[in-house]
């Protein structure tokens, strides 16, 4: 009786030990880095965007793996820089997609007309830290001065919108100019307070006629609450995925 029990225990131990004999065949975790920025070719500033799915993103094609690889994307940060520290060592064809003239231009029957992607080889432990893509944003949105609190505790910002490209295919009408209000820095079409933000859609050339002028936009919904607040203006044309070009987010001190 006692002997049988011992056998069972021994057998159980054997099973457990055996099952742990499998070889570890995991690929080492990716540890290389790709870091860089999307830069306005005209001004040298990074191109402002929004965080999340509707902002600038980086497209990697791992050409050392396959001639026709499934793309891998990661999002840019709001200020137009990007940094991914979990990249496998490989050869990549890299481009960025966002509210600017595309780097890979395709004509209306699908032929690639121009391709300004960059090929990058990442070997061993090296990192790429200064990848710069010079792009032409659809629009440049610049705040003029700082946001000003009015007597009724609403806020007025002044903004100037100009075209960032002379490419004739992107001289389209402005469809929206929005003043976004948020109590975080991450202020944009995907994150704003609808009570105070002033959204304006334009049809025809009404919005376009505001190009180059300093325009004033005031928050709606009465007095702003006394807390941290950031203001950012976004504008867009109906091109690509209708993404917004943004100004820098600015805060204002409650008087």
């Amino acid at each position: 009786m006692k002997k049988t029990k011992l056998y069972y225990i021994a057998f159980g131990l054997l099973v457990i030990l055996n099952s742990s004999c499998s070889k570890v065949d995991n690929y080492p975790a990716p540890s290389n880095t790709i870091k860089g920025s999307t830069i306005d070719a005209g001004t040298g500033n990074t191109v402002q965007t929004e965080v999340g799915g509707s902002g600038t993103r980086v497209k990697l094609l791992e050409t050392s793996y396959s001639a026709n690889p499934t793309p891998y994307y990661f999002q840019s940060m709001q200020d137009g820089t990007f940094d991914n520290t979990k990249i496998f060592a490989a050869t990549y064809k890299i481009s960025v997609e966002g509210p600017f003239v595309p780097l890979v231009v395709t004509d209306n029957v699908g032929n690639v007309v121009s391709d300004e992607s960059q090929n990058v080889v990442i070997k061993g432990t090296n990192t790429v830290t200064n990848l710069a893509f010079k792009v032409e944003p659809f629009l440049r949105v610049d705040m003029v001065g700082t946001p000003v609190f009015n007597a009724d505790s609403t806020v007025t910002v002044q903004v100037k919108i100009t075209r960032g490209t002379a490419n004739p295919a992107y001289q389209l009408d402005i469809t929206d100019i929005n003043l976004y209000v948020s109590n975080t820095l991450y202020d944009g079409n995907n994150n704003y307070d609808p009570r105070y933000s002033k959204l304006t859609s334009y049809s025809g050339s009404t919005g376009t006629s505001l190009l180059g002028q300093t325009i004033s936009i005031t928050t709606v919904g009465g007095a702003l609450p006394q807390q941290d607040v950031y203001f950012r203006v976004g504008a867009r044309i109906n091109a690509g995925l209708d993404e917004y070009n943004y100004s820098l987010p600015l805060s204002a001190k409650y008087p």
Partner: peptide
């Protein structure tokens, strides 16, 4: 619009 490598729309 989207085309693949063989110009299929």
């Amino acid at each position: 619009t989207l085309f693949d490598a063989t110009q299929t729309q």
